[in-house]
């Protein structure tokens, strides 16, 4: 029988307590216990980035994190980021630029890109590609994704420092 553990964490602003099997990873916990299906299951061994969520403010592989390790943590999924409106501009740019086709990689891509945008640093296209290098997309060829992220970054930087 599976060993279990009681955990309490905050998910998208809501406190949740559950008894989880200790070998359950965070992605399965979010999807199966909480119905948060934006956290995707891709490779399940850390390579593709489809399972990226935020744990205590940092982009994290859900498939490489045990649910028990998230005990006491603040977890955010794309459902949470969408609701808060934090990345409406980035999401609009993705739609504008057609930066998704099947959409499987998109939640992870957005969460990783959001971390980059938060740093509020000018970045070249090559820098953006490097930052997103842990998130695979099998459809778009990345060009449109980089376009969308670049557009959003440029707009945010301009907003921050209105040009003289």
């Amino acid at each position: 029988m599976d060993d279990v553990f009681d955990i309490t964490l905050t998910v998208n602003g809501r406190r949740v307590s559950r008894r989880v099997p200790v070998r359950q990873h965070l992605t399965d916990f979010l999807r199966e216990e909480l119905g948060l299906t934006s956290c995707h299951v891709g490779c399940e061994h850390g390579v593709c980035g489809a399972c990226t969520v935020r744990v205590d403010g940092a982009a994290t592989r859900g498939c490489l994190t045990l649910a028990v390790q998230a005990d006491g943590a603040v977890v955010e999924t794309l459902e949470g980021l969408s609701e808060s409106g934090e990345i409406v501009d980035l999401q609009a740019a993705f739609v504008d630029r057609n930066a998704l086709q099947c959409g499987y990689c998109t939640p992870g891509m957005l969460i990783t890109a959001a971390e980059m945008l938060d740093a509020k640093q000018p970045m070249s296209r090559a820098d953006i590609r490097t930052f997103l290098s842990g998130n695979y997309c099998r459809c778009t060829g990345y060009q449109a994704i980089v376009d969308a992220v670049e557009t959003t970054l440029t707009a945010r930087l301009a907003e921050q420092e209105p040009s003289a």
């Binding site: 980035g49 940092a58 994290t60 592989r61 490489l64 990783t112 490097t130 842990g134």
Partner: peptide, 12 residues
Amino acid sequence: LPYVAHVAIRNR
């Protein structure tokens, strides 16, 4: 450090 894996992996 920037050569070690990717952002999400360096976060953990």
